[in-house]
């Protein structure tokens, strides 16, 4: 999948704003309350470009807590839970797809 860092902002379906936490690089999501969380379930979900742009602008303005925010696709489960929308985002949530050597 083309790196989202290189994509234009087109929104088809639900999206969230995600980034890496500045201090430790952990994956974080922008919430409706205007803060970062490590829990994708707590992320603000946008379904239209205008809203996504608005969230992205707010998230980008906070450059002290997170790095390189971008718009990432999500899926909503039947019970409205927020799930990563592609393999890349899945890996960002759950880590590499194999067991780590030092574990």
């Amino acid at each position: 999948m083309t790196s989202p860092l290189q994509q234009k902002l087109k929104v088809h379906g639900p999206v969230v704003i995600t980034a890496n936490r500045l201090g430790d690089g952990a994956v974080v999501y922008w919430t409706a309350a205007g803060a970062w969380t490590t829990d994708i379930a707590a992320a603000a979900v946008a379904t239209a470009s205008a809203r996504a742009k608005q969230l992205l602008a707010a998230a980008t303005a906070d450059f002290v807590h997170a790095v390189d925010p971008y718009v990432a696709p999500v899926e909503l489960s039947p019970d409205r839970r927020v799930l990563p929308g592609n393999l890349r985002e899945q890996i960002r949530v759950s880590g590499p797809t194999f067991s780590l050597p030092g574990a």
């Binding site: 083309t2 393999l87 797809t97 194999f98």
Partner: peptide, 17 residues
């Protein structure tokens, strides 16, 4: 590959494994 790298299109390590 995609298990670590932000620029990746696809995974490399599981293919190697």
């Amino acid at each position: 590959g995609l298990d670590y790298c932000a620029l990746a299109n696809a995974r490399s390590i599981p293919v190697a494994q």
